[in-house]
Design a binder for these strands. Structure first.
Lengths: 203, 203
DNA sequence: CTATGTGAATTTATTCACAGCA
DNA sequence: TGCTGTGAATAAATTCACATAG
């Protein structure tokens, strides 16, 4: 394999492949790009091309060793070490996130939860003690470098600022607002209403 | 303007523009592609190109009339009529969605909520009576053609089947699972853990 | 003089098609 | 034979650059 810049689109697809492979695990040992493609409703050539950027995952004539492939993708995505994430905002959405079993699958652990509602602080959800927002500053010491923002819109930017100050390197933002951070910090925003807004166009 | 197939990417961006414009509304009457681009951190040429597919939104030397532009984008996205949506699954995530104020902004109304937990059925959240799942069949009669799936993973596919049967044309799916529907039905899936899974790569 | 709208140029991503390995 | 890995071909999206309108 020669050098190639890895397309962003490829990175976006790797978690999709990973999810599918985790699902197919324990069914077969090997899978061909064709079969995986059919399962995920994508093109087989796309899958081979994506993997080719990282080189030599498969065996010609046989296919890809599923377990090995999962390990490789996790390594590329930097998911082979467990990641600790902090949740800020334990409202309905935050509670849903805490209860969501899907994170473990990708190697995440929600290791801290914050809220500024005095009634909630000190309480426990899912064995996690809810801390007050000023304690965000302890994140660096606790080696928590990812965070999920699930606070009301008006508090989103100041929350982001506090997170950046606490050394957080990646943020999953659920507020319907562009948040501004230094560019060394990666933000992924999910604006639920905005996604819904695309639907009527297609129907 | 001559005929062009409209890129999917353009459609994906229109709600982003709309969100920004709604934010800027009441500040100025006009905005140039340059200023809007700076505000949204995109390229001005991108904005002009996107709008050009629909033709003649702006005034050379002046810019775009914000109110008019909002109206045009809503019309393209088919958001100028109010849309009713049904929510299936009133757990933490479902409750968060019900409480979320962002939907109104784009012209959505969550007009029905369903759950299969007998303790919840009949109860009210946000002035909305929670109905039992078999009542999904009433959606067609009630002219509800969009739905949000916020049920546990194992119930997602059967929920989707029931929705399709009830005449739903668009689905926003929060379960971490590929759901299969006839291709006249548009599905947008948001898998929260999968989005988070992209973050460690960048940090 | 400013800012749009749009062909043309460029960049990026996808798909094809096949040589070569197991 | 079956399937990978990858250059080459194609398609799609973005950006440039400028003629033109207000």
């Amino acid at each position: 394999m020669r050098y190639h810049r890895i397309p962003d689109e490829t990175i976006r697809r790797l978690p999709v492949y990973l999810r599918g492979l985790l699902f197919l695990l324990n069914q077969e040992q090997y899978i061909s790009s064709r079969n995986l493609a059919d399962f995920l409703s994508v093109r087989d050539s796309q899958i081979r091309k994506d993997f080719s950027y990282f080189g030599g995952f498969g065996t010609p004539g046989v296919g890809y060793d599923i377990r090995k492939l999962i390990r490789q993708i996790k390594k590329i995505l930097n998911l082979s070490v467990f990641h600790k994430a902090a949740l800020v905002g334990v409202g309905n959405l935050g509670s849903a996130i805490l209860a969501y079993p899907g994170f473990r699958m990708y190697g995440f652990e929600i290791a801290a939860a914050f809220d500024n509602n005095p009634k909630k602080i000190g309480g426990k959800i899912n064995n996690l003690r809810i801390e007050c927002v000023p304690f965000l500053r302890t994140l660096r010491r606790r080696k928590i470098s990812l965070a999920i923002i699930a606070v009301p819109r008006d508090a989103a930017q100041q929350t982001a600022d506090a997170l950046v100050k606490a050394g957080v390197k990646g943020i999953l933002n659920f507020s319907p607002l562009r948040i501004t951070v230094p560019k060394k910090v990666k933000v992924i925003t999910i604006d639920i209403a905005m996604e819904l807004a695309r639907l009527p166009y297609y129907i």
